[in-house]
Simulated assay, not measured.
Amino acid sequence: MKRTTQLRRILEQGGPGTVPGATDCFTARLIEQAGFPAVYVTGGGTANTYLGAPDIGLVTLNELAGLVERIADAVSIPVIADCDTGFGGVANVRRTIRAYERAGAAGLHIEDQIFPKRCGHFEGKTVVPARDMCYRLQAALDARTDPDFLIIARTDARAVEGFDAALERARLYRDIGADAIFVEQPRSVEELRRIGQAFPGEVLVANMVERSKTPLLPTAELAAMGFRIILYANAALYLGAHAIREGLAVLRSAGTTESLLDRMMTFGERQQLVGLDRADAYERDLAARVDRRAPAPNGQ
């Protein structure tokens, strides 16, 4: 089954629910191993890890699409990806959709900020006129070749024009044909609840950003409000950074990692996660099959 179709079926059943973000294949495999039904490729986290830079629109189409391709190749679950504003005008949006389809994404979200954009939870954002976003969105819908490829319309207008204006934009984007709605940065439980009430039965996205603008709510509570995709875009990044920082401090002071062994993945677990056993088994099988069909000449 295509992973685009797989994602659609998961959504029909009310999920996927919690979708953690990854900025590399190793983390994506950990997310799959933990049992999550989908993984998210975060643009902000990619800027942080790939460039060591803030999320201010520095990551390019080729850089993000390349990461999506590698992650989609590394896991078997659907990949939902950030594509910022589509990286330019409507021609750029069309190219972006095709690149993400080729990369193996099951869907993406595109937003209504100006280009270059800023992180959805930063101050100082600017949104384009709603009609310009409709042009972007229509270009995205026209460009996809797989009708199951999920196109999520994100509005950042809450922080710029207010909550009611954000809902109006979201309704407009839904009417253009977006498969899912993503109102970024709601600032209260009541606002989250109102989003669900405004779009009953629609596929809704919530973005849980720790210690930021939107209150953290359990997935079950958000699902009861109507949210089917709950992004934890950078939870793995925060968790990993905290552990790395603490571990490096110990290594710096003690000169050894011996006291950290019970807090570290083992060498064997690491190789199992990346599939060393499968790679070795394939080489043994290949050699056996070739040797049976083409025995080596005498003396070789």
Rank of each mutant, 00 (worst) to 15 (best):
Q138L: 04
E111T: 04
T145I: 14
A106N: 07
E161Y: 07
R136P: 09
V189R: 09
D132W: 05
C134F: 03
A105D: 07
H121I: 14
D175W: 14
R98L: 08
V183S: 03
A106L: 05
R171N: 05
E101M: 06
H109N: 04
P129G: 12
R95W: 13
A153V: 07
F115M: 04
A99L: 04
A165K: 09
V93R: 01
A180W: 04
T126Q: 15
L192I: 14
K125Q: 10
D175C: 09
G89W: 08
V90Q: 09
F149A: 00
A130G: 10
Y173R: 02
V93C: 00
E184Y: 13
V128L: 04
D142L: 05
I181K: 03
D148V: 05
L172G: 01
S188Q: 11
G107I: 04
D146W: 13
A165Y: 07
D156I: 00
R118D: 03
D148L: 03
I176Y: 13
R169P: 01
I181T: 13
A99H: 11
S188R: 07
P116M: 07
E190Q: 15
R131D: 14
Y173T: 00
S188V: 10
T155D: 04
I151K: 00
I110R: 00
H109C: 01
A178H: 07
I151V: 11
A99Q: 06
I152L: 02
P186E: 03
C119I: 07
E161H: 11
L108D: 02
A103R: 06
T145W: 12
H109Q: 05
E101P: 12
F115I: 06
R136Q: 09
R154P: 06
P147R: 12
T96R: 02
R169D: 02
Q185R: 15
M133N: 04
V183T: 11
P147F: 09
I181G: 08
D148R: 08
L137R: 02
Y135W: 13
R154M: 02
F149K: 01
Q138N: 10
R187H: 14
A153F: 09
R102A: 15
P147W: 11
A157P: 05
A105S: 12
V128N: 10
D146Y: 13
R118Q: 07
Q113V: 01
G124K: 11
D146S: 08
H109R: 03
I114W: 11
R94D: 05
T96E: 00
E168D: 14
R136H: 15
G120H: 08
F122Q: 03
G107K: 07
R171V: 04
G104T: 13
I97S: 00
R118Y: 12
E161T: 11
I97Y: 14
A153N: 06
E161L: 04
A165P: 11
G104E: 07
L172F: 10
D156V: 01
F149G: 01
P129Y: 12
A130M: 10
D146Q: 09
V160D: 07
R187G: 06
P129V: 06
A159V: 08
F163V: 00
V93G: 00
A153P: 06
L172T: 14
D179T: 12
Y135K: 05
F122W: 13
G120T: 10
P129F: 12
D132S: 11
